[in-house]
């Protein structure tokens, strides 16, 4: 494991912890898209089907369990927690995420390594992760104002993507048999989706003002 991948994993973990902290501390999930959170939970569950069949390292297994549990906990809080669920912006969170799921499923059925249950769902999770942030970005766009913790959540998520791309470049240069193709393209798509957000995040940070997205 190289430093870029480790930094990517850590910023990914921090983004989830920031989100849990926001929900726990403010008892509110305002500005958070339930649809994006459901998609991430689905991404982790379908990608880590190998949890019990292929052992890579204790680090990998622990992180997989942590990601599945924390993403499920967030979805549970937003749907079921007596107080938290009241602050959910249902009227603004109208992205048709089922179409993303169906589109990724069709793509995974066409483009995959091997036609097995695990491999198809692994490919599905890679494609879905690339677009899972869309409902969240649309929700931020619609609500205009972004509170600090929500802004930091998306910031860390974007940092995770940037570190993973550096990791792939590093692996491409140092490992003989490392070829990316489809995963790299999905990774680039996912990272590009953040570019717009990062621009406004930078502007608000530079001016030391509240993050506001144009409508």
């Amino acid at each position: 494991m190289n430093i870029f991948r480790f930094a990517g994993d850590m910023t990914h973990l921090i983004s989830i912890l920031v989100l849990l902290l926001k929900i726990y501390a403010t008892k509110s999930c305002a500005g958070i898209s339930l649809k994006t959170q459901e998609l991430y939970a689905l991404v982790f569950v379908t990608r880590y089907l190998d949890l019990f069949t292929d052992f890579i390292s204790v680090y990998n297994s622990v992180m997989k369990v942590v990601f599945i549990l924390t993403s499920s906990a967030i979805v549970w809080c937003m749907r079921r927690h007596r107080i938290v669920k009241r602050s959910y912006d249902q009227a603004l969170d109208t992205f048709r995420h089922l179409f993303l799921v169906l589109g990724c499923l069709v793509l995974a059925l066409i483009v995959h390594d091997k036609f097995t249950f695990q491999e198809v769902f692994w490919a599905f999770s890679i494609y879905l992760e690339a677009v899972a942030i869309l409902p969240q970005l649309v929700l931020l766009q619609r609500s205009g104002n972004v509170d600090n913790l929500t802004g930091q959540y998306v910031f860390f998520l974007g940092a995770y993507r940037a570190f993973y791309i550096l990791n792939w470049i590093y692996r491409y240069l140092t490992e003989q048999h490392f070829r990316l193709w489809i995963s790299c393209i999905s990774g680039l798509v996912q990272t590009a989706l953040y570019a717009d957000f990062f621009y406004y995040y930078y502007i608000s940070w530079k001016n030391n003002s509240k993050l506001q997205l144009p409508s």
Partner: peptide, 10 residues
């Protein structure tokens, strides 16, 4: 395969 190289990642 072209994807298996990423199986050791998260």
């Amino acid at each position: 395969g072209y994807m298996s190289a990423l199986k050791d990642e998260l």
